[in-house]
């Protein structure tokens, strides 16, 4: 299922914008109405959410299940960190540079990856993820070694504005970047929906009709690299520290699994699932110290059985069900069991 994003010519179309305004509204409410814990905690989840958007794009739109998007993520993050530490602290500059670094990295890797399919891509990208951490660890002048970098200067939104350090502005900023980048991804994917569905579904026929399949996939991979790079910049802006472990297999696995839970064809679903996953690991498990992996494992198992096709498919089924119930307009009350759960 793909969200549509046309311009709001009519009132009816405005409804399509609501999903995009929801996270912004939620972030504003959170920033306004809670203590310092929630804004900082949620803001720190958003880089992974945006990385999951990038992974879902490659996995869903291009059909290439990947663990390798941590490479452009790392490129974006270290570019941002080094720019900030060199005294260039403008956020728009960071985002642009990180997106370019991400696209460049993904472009290079894409030349190798997009020629392959299925499990081979998964394993090649596993090597990419592992080699990304190793390279970051070894390249100490950039990464600061295994302990990484800390105390990276905060970004400025515009010249002359105060640095983005307080938790609430950081949350609003990170939400805005995440939503904008996801919306841009969706717009592009929607515009090329026909081509991508066709290429993914039947490569041979598409090639025989003159479609350079590999080039299309490379473009998607590279574009998703720009999103991953942006996510890397966001990682620095929300954390202001980074270690090589943050751009390794664990992060890649969480992002890919979030994309699966969200429904691989839905970047926004992946973002929501990433927040859910980190919510379980960092928030729900905080009161049962030492058992975060157990809860995370339970979440994954539950997601497989209870949400076939991911969150997005569940939402679609829910909508279909509501429509069906409305259409039949049954007068009898709902069964007791469903009342209890609703």
């Amino acid at each position: 299922m793909t969200a549509r994003l046309p311009l709001p010519h009519r009132w009816d179309d405005l409804r399509r914008w609501v999903p995009w305004l929801l996270p912004l509204g939620a972030a504003t409410t959170l920033a306004a109405a809670s203590d310092g814990y929630w804004p900082a905690t949620v803001a720190r989840m958003l880089p992974l959410a945006l990385l999951a958007v990038s992974v879902a794009t490659v996995t869903g739109a291009a059909g290439l299940p990947t663990l390798g998007q941590v490479a452009p993520y790392a490129a974006g993050a270290y570019t941002t960190a080094r720019l900030a530490m060199a005294g260039h602290t403008l956020a728009p500059v960071h985002l642009t540079a990180a997106a370019l670094a991400g696209a460049f990295t993904a472009g290079l890797l894409g030349m190798l990856l997009v020629r392959h399919r299925g499990t081979v891509v998964l394993m090649l990208s596993l090597a990419v993820a592992e080699l990304t951490t190793i390279t970051a660890t070894q390249w100490r002048t950039v990464s600061g070694g295994t302990d990484g970098l800390a105390g990276i200067p905060a970004p400025h939104l515009l010249p002359g504005t105060p640095p983005l350090t307080a938790d609430r502005p950081v949350l609003l900023y990170a939400t805005a970047v995440t939503v904008a980048a996801t919306a841009a991804t969706m717009l592009l994917l929607h515009r090329h929906h026909l081509l991508l569905t066709a290429v993914r579904g039947n490569e041979t026929r598409a090639a025989a009709s003159g479609h350079p399949v590999t080039t299309y996939l490379w473009l998607v991979h590279t574009g998703a690299g720009a999103i991953a790079g942006t996510a890397g910049a966001l990682l620095i802006h929300t954390h202001r520290w980074i270690t090589p472990a943050d751009v390794g297999f664990d992060t890649a696995a969480l992002a890919l699994l979030a994309a699966v839970i969200g429904g691989t064809h839905s970047p926004p679903g992946a973002a929501v699932a990433a927040v859910l996953v980190l919510g379980v690991r960092d928030v729900a498990a905080a009161d049962w110290p030492g058992h975060a992996p157990l809860l995370l494992g339970a979440l994954f198992v539950a997601a497989v059985y209870l949400l076939p096709g991911g969150l997005t498919a569940a939402l679609t089924r829910l909508r279909a069900e509501i429509r069906r119930v409305r259409a039949t307009r049954r007068p009898e009350p709902l069964p007791a069991a469903s009342r209890r759960t609703s």
Binding site: T59, P65, G118, T119, L122, A253, L256, L257, V260, I261, T264, P293, L294, L296, G297, A298, L299, F300, V301, A303, V304, P308
Partner: peptide, 15 residues
């Protein structure tokens, strides 16, 4: 395979 990966990764964490 992705659903299997999700399931078995979850089982691995629990295990």
């Amino acid at each position: 395979h992705l659903d299997q990966a999700l399931l078995t990764f979850g089982i691995a964490l629990i295990g």
